[in-house]
């Protein structure tokens, strides 16, 4: 971080002709410094470089391969689709001769449930991470951290069942109250499934929030824990209270990590399948952009149809939906990167 003023990197010398030990340079003798004599070490260095480069390439290659697979499989079905892929609310694939499918509702339900989950989980995770790193006594810190991590280990089907049988019914009065008082806002208006049934985006979003809480919390906690002691002491020595110290040092230092962690959580929420599939009720009407809608997310729709993937054309329709989810995740990550990387890095 410390950069000396007026220090400039020396321009790199002309490569090739003038390098010491280079062939054809008559005054220079091949001594022990010559790179040939330390060949063994060089080889290990090269090997390691190629091995790690190879590992890096694997990531790019597999993402490319997945994208390509999705695109290739989806293409014929997209061509055969007689509905508007982006605007249609239908997903009718039983008649191979007349495929009509669109992702509008899937997009609405997926984005709405994930965004709602994030809106609940982000402040909660921030609070827990601050509590654990700044306020909790040491022994409690460990116990609490352990509990949070356990939350991540609960299988998602269990979350689904909990949401369906416990949380859904419990939340009905809350949902009704919200609908009653804030119903004039489209987000809280009557949706396309019954509120008293509990199988709404509202319930699913809260289940998702609980599911993504551990990942956001533990990453944020680790980042906050790494706040340099010198910064913390600098703030305290100026007469900052604990909260002021947190605002001056911990939060700006951990900001990009916190956003990154939240995006990891969002990625998980976007792709969550079983829990959402169990909780959300099937809707017969198009989605209304309300938290009290039901229906399918991309992932839950694909999972629900998985045992019918026989004919390639209908299957391709679902793969096309998967492709949109894939791209959506990419976009979310790109946005996260811009937010997280923008201001903080250049300190």
């Amino acid at each position: 971080m410390v950069r000396d003023d007026g220090m400039t990197t020396p321009p790199s010398g002309p490569s090739g002709t003038g390098t010491p030990g280079g062939a054809g340079d008559t005054h220079v003798r091949d001594g022990p410094l010559n790179e040939m004599s330390s060949g063994g070490r060089r080889k290990a260095d090269d090997l390691f470089r190629w091995a790690s480069t190879g590992a890096g390439i694997t990531v790019v290659a597999s993402i490319g391969a997945i994208g390509l697979f999705l695109a290739v499989q989806a293409w014929p079905s997209l061509m055969a689709n007689s509905a508007n892929f982006f605007l249609s609310t239908e997903f009718e694939t039983s008649d191979v001769e007349d495929l009509r499918f669109g992702v509008r509702d899937l997009l609405v339900v997926t984005v709405l449930s994930s965004a709602f989950a994030l809106a609940i989980a982000m402040p909660l995770a921030l609070g827990i991470a601050l509590f654990l790193t700044q306020y909790a006594p040491r022994n409690l810190q460990r116990l609490f951290g352990y509990l949070i991590d356990t939350l991540a280990a609960v299988p998602s089907i269990v979350y689904g069942l909990w949401g369906l049988f416990v949380l859904g019914p419990v939340l009905v009065p809350v949902a009704l109250w919200l609908n009653d008082t804030l119903g004039w806002i489209p987000l809280f208006a009557e949706g396309n499934v019954s509120i008293t049934g509990g199988g709404t985006i509202f319930t699913a979003g809260i289940v998702l929030a609980v599911m993504i809480l551990p990942i956001i919390t533990s990453v944020t906690r680790e980042v906050f824990r790494q706040t340099p002691v010198t910064h913390i002491e600098g703030a305290l020595a100026l007469g900052a209270t604990k909260w002021e110290m947190i605002r001056m040092t911990v939060l700006p230092f951990g900001r990009s990590g916190y956003i990154g962690a939240s995006m990891l959580g969002l990625g998980r929420a976007l792709g969550e399948t079983v829990a959402v599939l169990v909780v959300l009720r099937i809707a017969t009407e198009p989605a209304t952009f309300s938290l009290f809608d039901g229906g399918y997310t991309f992932a839950s729709l694909i999972a629900s149809a998985a045992n019918e993937f026989v004919h390639p054309l209908p299957t391709g329709a679902y793969i096309a939906a998967g492709l949109v989810l894939f791209v959506l995740t990419f976009i979310v990550n790109a946005i996260a990167r811009t937010i997280a990387g923008g201001k903080v890095q250049r300190g």
Partner: peptide, 20 residues
């Protein structure tokens, strides 16, 4: 203690300006 630190300033071993 917060009040004490406001009246007694401190400079540390390694420079620690707030980076943000």
């Amino acid at each position: 203690p917060v009040q004490v630190r406001r009246t007694i300033g401190m400079v540390f071993q390694s420079p620690n300006p707030f980076p943000t």
